[in-house]
Design a protein around this nucleic acid. Sequence first.
DNA 1: TGGGGTCCT
DNA 2: AGGACCC
Length: 617
Amino acid sequence: MAASLGSQGRKRPAVAEAVVAARAGKRARGLGRRRLVAHLDVDCFYAQSEEIADPALVGKPVGVKQKYLLVTCNYVARSMGVAKMSKVADALRICPTLHVVNGEDLTRYREASAAICAALRTALDSVAARLGLARVPVEKLVLDELYMDLSSVVAGLEAAPQVATSVLAAGAAVEAVHVLGPGPGGCGWVALESCDRSLALAAAVLAMARADIKAATGFTTSGGVGSSKLAAKLASQAHKPAQLSAMGDAALVHSVTGIGYATRKMLRSELSVETVAELRKFDAAFLARFFGEAKARWLYQVARGVDNDPVVDTVAGDGGGGGNGVPRPKSMSVEDSFRGCSDWANVSTRLHLLAGDLAARMVADAAAFSRRACKMRVSFRSAGTRRSASKTSALPTELGAMYTFPVRDDNGSPLTGASSALEVYAAVIARHGVKLVKRAIGSGSFALTLLGLTVLDFEPLSATPSRALTSFLAPPMPSAEPPAPSVRAKAVHFKGQARLLPPPAAPCSPPRAKAGAAAVPKPLAHSPPLRSRPRLLTSFAAHLPSRPAPELALAPAPALASDPATKSSADPRDRSIGPIRCPDCKRAVAVADVAAHAAMHERKAKATLDGFFCKPT
DNA sequence: TGGGGTCCT
DNA sequence: AGGACCC
């Protein structure tokens, strides 16, 4: 399908239609000649969520753990030498005052993420409305990252010069803009053609959005603006918060989103490529020998700063998607890891627990999006291996009843208690999961270290789009019969109920679109030299027509704790504790030296970054 | 190295 | 079903 032509790498056929729409819309409206994309990244999302949930934590070092791993921590903790993805025990030795919160249950983070999405949607809807423009596409990448296509907003501002001028002239909303122009040697990286002004306008809009998110949810964010998703994302990571940057020539290939461990290894060992500039020496046909056609083409383009991946509007308000501000996931999963699980009773118990969580999310998903899953998958990992395996099958047919209400027990009595019904569903899923695992690993002995459940392949729940669904999660009606007795897995047969919804007549997902054979594009022409960057001074909103002067002042930068290098070293007692392996360089570091060591890494990283990014003159 | 996700082969 | 990528 032609839709995929300009998309690279990991662009998913599943959104091909949305991609077409995005492109067509852009062309049809004849908007600005170039895109302006913004990327927002919530600062240390899990840790910040915990601070917001418990304000007593603010100012203290906070880490979030999953199992024995500290998956993230706040900036206070980082300044004390605590590293993300270190072991909890190591982190506590480095920083005994660290507040460790368990983050294995993602529910709160999902909720926080939805609130952030909703706040952003509201902010951008308001801007668009005041400028008389259509919706701004907002795409959620993961829980804590969003892309926006601000092209139309910037074009709208440029069409209203007094407003735009007012926005720009008034001032200090945004910090300096860091851009790297094409070098004299002719290896221009990012096509930040022409005017800084539109870039600055985009930055101003982004600043407003950040402020609104902060006001509505309390979360601070970092942002980047660029001519593509790639550029915007790199920018948001380069200078935090809310400055603008574009990737430079010397950037390591691995800093490019989409080039991961395997690709970097291949580039390094086979082609001796470490930097983007070096990658640019190879043409697509040659790269294809190592990476396959599609990825080679993507690498070729990305090395030249070309990234046409559109922002797909997945974050709906009330409009397109249904579901308040939450994009539709294509799959939902739960998993848990553990030390050893060698008998079927244990497997069953664990799957029941997982299935309970999943069933609740499935019901909420059904209510939000009017759809149901057609397939389920069980994943498991055996001790000694790092790989996990999986088995996929249709959802048990009894689960057709999950989306109709009331559900009846064996005696034909309706189940009115939501939690009871959920137990039933969970039991059905879990028992089927056990069967699948059994089918996969047979009857011998086993030792599992991970179990997971996924549901996927959603289909619309069109027939009788149930009020029943909404009542499902509600507490039992006062007039209803007494709550059903606790239902055990045994009671799950559903008799006639199982056939309330017939099995899907059509395949659940459309056939995958095929990417057309795209010609390898020519490298971009070089951009003209950049002029000096304007500094923006004030809040955006005040310069929009008729916006009731809100407190939209820029959110303060997230408090960066004091310079780690100046901190006094740790308690001498720490000398008695064994050295800790640095997660970055793998060297053993004495506890007392950890903060200094971390500071060293930070300085190094910053120096490297500064090499990549050109500060405004 | 967790507990999620996406897409490609 | 597995592998790559992302956070």
